[in-house]
Simulated assay, not measured.
Amino acid sequence: MKWTNQLKASTTLLAALVMAGCSSYPDEGQGGMGEYTAMSDFSPVFPEEPLGPEHGLRFDFHLARLQLDSLINQGAEWCFPASVVQAETKEKRIARELEGGLLLDAANDIVILRKNLNKLELQLDYVTSETECVPPSQNASFQSDKAIITQLVDLLNVDNQFAVGSTEINPKYMGHLAEAANLLKQHRHLKLSVTGHADMAGSPEYNEKLAMGRAKQVERYLVIFGLETARIQTLSVGETLPLTEGDTPAIRLTNRRVSIDIVSTNAQGGGYEHL
């Protein structure tokens, strides 16, 4: 089922939210930007309450969840497990942001999630035109593989990775890279796509170069920890895809980062799972 037209209907609501400028930085446990916790159940409309930006976000969030559910029902979990794991992780983040009142942050993450789901839909359409996405015969092995992907996603995508204007990696994050490299050495069918990001403090040209430097620095340490260069792809988007909109010190901290996607070469049909 195609969702593009349905999702476009909520774009106006997201634009209205951005104009409202709703964003904050709550304490840990209250929907903070770096939290990946259990999914909450949201209703798209609140009874006996006037409609506002949060209603539009909740409705848009439900559309994205329905799209992912539809893709899973079509077999996306079997052909593209890494993509499904990362979409589910993003859903949990959005749920926490909505629960914590981080409406602008949730809007930004919903846009990213929708883009990833549309990409997954195209991939699934292509694969299912040639073969079926069905549970593997070694289901226990598949579930173990999915658990490893989930662990890698949580290890590699955390906040507080870099200092201002620097490519030097936070020592704690370096420990995460070492642990991830050890896991990846045991699961050779998994590769990484490392995308560098910068906050809005510098010029676009400077931020593009800085973001690529961060991606390359992550690649350098992964190689030091024993991962082959051929298993790592590096990209830069500069300041153009912030994790959170805004210009406070806390928000700039979360936007100085790399985002790392897991790429599985075990997708059915002999192809790669590109994220």
Rank of each mutant, 00 (worst) to 15 (best):
E179G: 05
R256N: 00
D69Y: 10
D145S: 03
N116D: 15
V158N: 09
A201Y: 12
D69H: 11
K115T: 00
Q67F: 13
G100R: 03
C22R: 05
N170G: 02
L68G: 08
T265L: 07
T37N: 11
K2E: 03
E132Y: 05
G165H: 09
A198T: 02
M200L: 14
T131W: 01
S166L: 02
L235D: 15
K172E: 08
E130V: 00
A140C: 09
Y272E: 13
A38S: 14
L190H: 08
Y272K: 01
E54A: 07
P53S: 14
S10R: 14
Y272Q: 13
T229K: 14
M39E: 13
D247Y: 11
T240E: 11
L124T: 02
S166T: 02
D154M: 10
K209N: 11
D145E: 11
R114V: 04
L120C: 02
C133W: 09
P171C: 11
C22L: 15
C22H: 12
A163T: 05
G270V: 07
Q233A: 14
S141L: 13
E219D: 04
Y36K: 10
A178P: 00
L51K: 07
L7C: 12
L177G: 04
A211P: 06
I169P: 04
R58I: 05
I262L: 02
R96G: 13
Y221D: 07
C79H: 09
P171H: 09
F142W: 09
G246H: 04
G271E: 07
T254A: 10
P242C: 03
V164P: 04
